[in-house]
Amino acid sequence: MAGQVKDREAFQRLNFLYQAAHCVLSQNPENQALARFYCHTEKTIAKRLVLRQDPSVKRTLCRDCSSLLIPGLTCTQRQRRRKGQRWTVQTCLTCQRSQRFLNDPKHLLWGDRPEAQLENQADFKPSEPLPNIADLSKENVQTQALNTTE
């Protein structure tokens, strides 16, 4: 799956750190500081090397203190209703920072859609590049100007 990737080693390291944080916490829930250190290191590497992380990974890390967010252990998760909308509120128990996610059944992240996957794009190979909309509009204006002068 991760065949020819530019920063494969870096991704491998991020993957290891993320799993190490989980492993450390599962073995002993008091190892929160160590798990936090691993997650902070992972964040720093991703930032320095400009590597993307899937939203499912980013949502499990506290944006403030870099804690690994595990429901019932390092964070609480509640359903709230406000202004006629339902939200999932995740609160970090280390720094009390809360994140809200809108419970919209129609909404789907671009990364989770099938058309976003590169595997599904393999069959779609345009013979000609798609024209730029701005260029097209200019061309139309120019042709109209020519017609009027004639």
Binding site: L14, R52, Q121, E128, P129, Q142, L146
Partner: peptide, 25 residues
């Protein structure tokens, strides 16, 4: 007035941009 580019003008095909991201293991 500047002429419109000809129909058969050759453009370089831009490679497909791919975003790689670490997925949840």
């Amino acid at each position: 007035a500047p002429q419109a580019p000809k129909r058969g003008s050759i453009r370089k095909t831009r490679p497909l941009v791919v975003k790689t991201s670490l997925n949840n293991p």
